[in-house]
Design a protein around this nucleic acid. Structure first.
Length: 563
RNA sequence: CGGGGUGUAGCGCAGCCUGGUAGCGCGCACGGUUCGGGACCGUGAGGUCCCGGGUUCAAAUCCCGGCACCCCGACCA
C-alpha cells in the first residue's frame, strides 16, 4: 500500500491525556483515536493489527473444534433478569420506543445459553461456540487507552458438556489454545490461578502479560515454579522476632496509640509480633473480626473467599456496640463473634488490642486465649518467600489479556438449558466461558515491545510486514525501484507499506520507527548508484546493506529470525 | 463515589495572579531554496478562549453553577 494514499495521522508530540506507553504510542502512531472516555476508534492501521490478533484467535479456536457464530449486541433484558445480572451497575440499559427493556451486554452468557436450550440430548454434546462481538460496560473509570474501555470487541467462547469431566476437557482444550494464541502473538505471559472463591470453587485461569502499565499485580517466584495474581497469591512472611513468652496475656496501657508503627515503637517490639483487627460486616449482616499480623495488609478478595460472602468494613457505631472500644484498640480476646485469623498468627505470641480504649494485651496466643478459624487472608508482600519452594517472590504489573472460567450450571439452571442423559433423566448442561480481548493483546504487545522511537511489533501483529522507505531526493529511478521491491515482496507473500510521500527522510524514518513494522527497506541514492538498499530490523535496530535484486531472498531469511 | 489536575487554532502550550484589540512553537496552504534521521526563507488561512449565569464602562482573566477529559483511590461479570 502507498502511504501517500492512506489515513495514518501520526503525531509528533505526545498527546497530553496519554500516560501509559501503549496509549501514547498507539495514539501517536495513528492506530487509534478517542471518541469519548473509554471509547476508541480503530483507525486503518490499528484495525489491521486488531484483525491480525483476531485471526490468530480464530485459527486456534477452530483448531479445538470451536464453531464461529455471531450473537446480536442488543439483548432483551428478560434474559438478564433471569440470571440476576440485570442489577449489575456496569450493565448498560436502554429501552426501545415501545418501552421494552434491553441491555448492551458485558458478555454473552445469557444469549448463548438461550440458544443452548435447543440442545435436547446427551448425543448433541459437547459443543464449543464462539464469536467476536462488541461488549459494552459502563465502567466507573476507563483508563490507559485500550487497557480499560467502555466498549470493545471480545472473543468469547462457551463450552457445553454433559458433566464435570467433559467440562474439564473443554476447559483444558481452551487453556492449551490460549497458550498457543499468546505465544503466536509474541507475548510474554503467565497463566495463573485466578480468584474463584465466591463462585463455589470453580476453576478459573487468568492470562497475565507483564507490562509497564496494567491493572493486575503478578506475583512470581524467582525459580519460576510459582505465578499468581496478587489477589490470590500466597506468600510466606518472614518470621517475627518474638519477645519473651508470657504465661497469660498482660494488659499494657497504650494511650492515644492507633497505628502499628506507634504501637511497636512504644513497646519496643517487632511490628511483625503485633496483630491488627479488621471488623467487617458480611452480606448476611453478621459482624466478623478479620485478624492479620500487624505488618500485613488484609486481602479483601481472600477474606471474601474465606467467608463465602461479600463484606464491608464495620462502621464506628457497630464497632463500639460489639467491642465497647475504639477501632484502634480491638482484639480477639473476649470477642464473642466469629474470628477469621490469618495463618501467620497460628504460632507465637502477639500484641493485640484489649477491647478497651487505650489498652493492648501482650502475649496473646491463638488457641489458648481465643478461638479462630485460620485462613490465608493476608496480602503478600515483596520479600515474602514462595509457598512451594521457598524462593524469593517478586511483583510486577501486568495486563489481563485472557480469562477462562468454569461456569458449571450458573447459567444453564436459571435459563433452563438442560439435556436428557442416556437414562432419560433431565440434567443441566455444564458450561464454561472463555474470553480474550484482542485490543488488550495489542496494548500488551506495545507495552512489552517498544523503545524510545516507537513500537516494535512482533511479526504476528504488525500492521505491515515490511515498510519500504523511498528517499525522495534519490529521484525517479529510486522511486521506481522502491515500487518494484514493493511488488516483489507482495508477490512473495509479504504485506508492504510503501512510504512514497513527498517528505524529508528524517520524517519518514521517524514515522517508520513509530509505526513499528518488523522490517524496513530504505531505497536511496545507493540504490541508484550501486544497486544496494538498506535493510533494518526494527526491534534489534540492526541494519545491513543488501543488493536490490536479493531483497526478497534476504527478507525471507531474516523474517524467520524475528520475534 | 472520594481526592487532585486540566479545558485557549488540528497538536503541544503561554496569557489568568494584577480585567483593557488573543499569542508562541509545531502542523496546514501557496511560492522558492533544500533532501539518508522530524531543514530554511517568504506569504497566508485557521479561534464559541468548554457551557450557562453574575460583577464591571469592559471578562480568556474575577465570582457562582454546570459539563467534559486526564491522573490517584474505591469498584471491576
Amino acid at each position: 500500500m502507498r502511504a501517500s494514499a492512506l489515513f495514518i495521522p501520526t503525531l509528533r508530540a505526545d498527546p497530553a491525556e496519554a500516560e501509559a506507553v501503549s496509549h501514547r504510542l498507539l495514539l501517536r502512531g495513528g492506530f487509534i483515536r478517542p471518541v469519548s472516555a473509554g471509547l476508541y476508534t480503530y483507525l486503518p492501521l490499528g484495525w489491521r493489527v486488531h484483525q491480525k490478533a483476531v485471526q490468530i484467535v480464530r485459527e486456534e479456536m477452530d483448531a479445538i473444534g470451536g464453531q464461529e457464530m455471531l450473537c446480536p449486541v442488543l439483548t432483551p433484558a428478560e434474559l438478564w433478569q433471569q440470571t440476576g445480572r440485570y442489577e449489575i451497575p456496569e450493565v448498560f440499559k436502554l429501552k426501545d420506543r415501545g418501552g421494552r427493556a434491553f441491555v448492551l451486554p458485558m458478555t454473552h452468557e445469557e444469549t448463548v445459553t438461550f440458544h443452548a436450550r435447543e440442545i435436547q440430548s446427551y448425543r448433541e454434546l459437547p459443543q464449543i461456540l464462539y464469536h467476536f462481538q462488541t461488549k459494552d460496560r459502563d465502567e466507573p473509570r476507563p483508563r490507559g487507552g485500550l487497557l480499560r474501555v467502555r466498549e470493545f470487541i471480545m472473543k468469547d467462547s462457551y463450552s457445553f458438556d454433559r458433566d464435570g469431566e467433559g467440562l474439564e476437557r473443554s476447559f483444558r482444550l481452551h487453556a492449551k489454545a490460549y497458550e498457543r494464541i499468546f505465544e503466536r502473538c509474541g507475548l510474554e505471559f503467565f497463566a495463573v490461578q485466578a480468584e474463584s472463591g465466591m463462585m463455589g470453587g470453580s476453576a478459573s485461569i487468568d492470562y497475565l502479560a507483564p507490562a509497564g502499565a496494567g491493572e493486575n499485580t503478578l506475583v512470581t517466584c524467582e525459580r519460576g515454579d510459582y505465578a499468581a495474581d496478587l489477589e490470590i497469591a500466597r506468600g510466606i512472611p518472614r518470621a517475627p522476632a518474638f519477645p519473651e513468652r508470657l504465661a497469660a496475656p498482660q494488659e499494657v496501657a497504650t494511650p492515644g496509640i492507633s497505628t502499628i508503627e506507634a504501637l511497636a515503637g512504644l513497646l519496643g517490639i517487632d511490628p511483625a509480633a503485633t496483630s491488627k483487627a479488621m471488623p467487617v460486616v458480611t452480606d448476611a449482616g453478621t459482624l466478623v473480626l478479620g485478624l492479620v499480623r500487624g505488618d500485613d495488609r488484609l486481602e479483601e478478595a481472600k477474606l471474601a473467599a474465606a467467608l463465602g460472602s461479600g463484606h464491608r468494613p464495620a462502621t464506628e457505631e457497630e464497632i463500639r456496640a460489639a467491642f465497647g472500644a475504639d477501632p484502634g484498640s480491638l482484639g480477639p480476646v473476649g470477642f464473642e463473634g466469629e474470628i477469621v485469623a490469618d495463618e501467620a498468627l497460628r504460632e507465637g505470641q502477639f500484641v493485640a488490642g484489649a477491647n478497651r480504649t487505650g489498652w493492648h494485651l501482650r502475649g496473646v496466643e491463638a488457641g489458648r486465649d481465643f478461638e479462630a478459624r485460620f485462613a490465608d487472608i493476608r496480602e503478600p508482600k515483596e520479600g515474602d518467600t514462595c509457598p512451594r519452594c521457598g524462593g524469593a517472590l517478586s511483583f510486577q504489573i501486568a495486563i489481563e489479556v485472557g480469562h477462562i472460567f468454569k461456569l458449571e450450571t450458573r447459567y444453564s439452571v436459571p435459563l433452563g438449558a438442560t439435556y436428557l442423559d442416556e437414562h432419560g433423566a433431565e440434567r443441566p448442561i455444564q458450561m464454561g466461558s472463555y474470553g480474550i480481548g484482542p485490543g488488550r493483546i495489542m496494548a500488551a504487545a506495545v507495552e512489552q515491545r517498544h523503545d524510545e522511537h516507537g513500537i516494535a511489533w512482533p511479526r504476528a501483529l504488525a500492521p505491515y510486514d515490511v515498510h519500504v522507505v523511498a528517499i525522495e531526493s534519490a529521484g525517479a529511478e529510486a522511486a521506481a525501484l522502491a515500487e518494484r521491491i514493493e511488488r516483489e515482496l507482495e508477490r512473495a507473500g509479504f504485506s508492504v507499506l510503501l512510504d512514497d510521500r513527498d517528505r524529508r527522510p528524517g520524517e519518514k524514518f521517524a514515522d517508520a520507527d513509530l509505526i513499528g513494522c518488523p522490517l524496513r527497506v530504505t531505497v536511496g541514492k545507493k540504490a541508484v548508484q550501486e544497486g544496494a538498499v538498506d535493510l533494518l530490523a526494527r526491534a534489534a535496530r540492526s541494519e545491513e546493506a543488501c543488493r536490490a535484486d536479493d531483497v526478497v531472498t534476504r527478507i525471507r531469511t531474516l523474517w524467520e529470525t524475528l520475534p
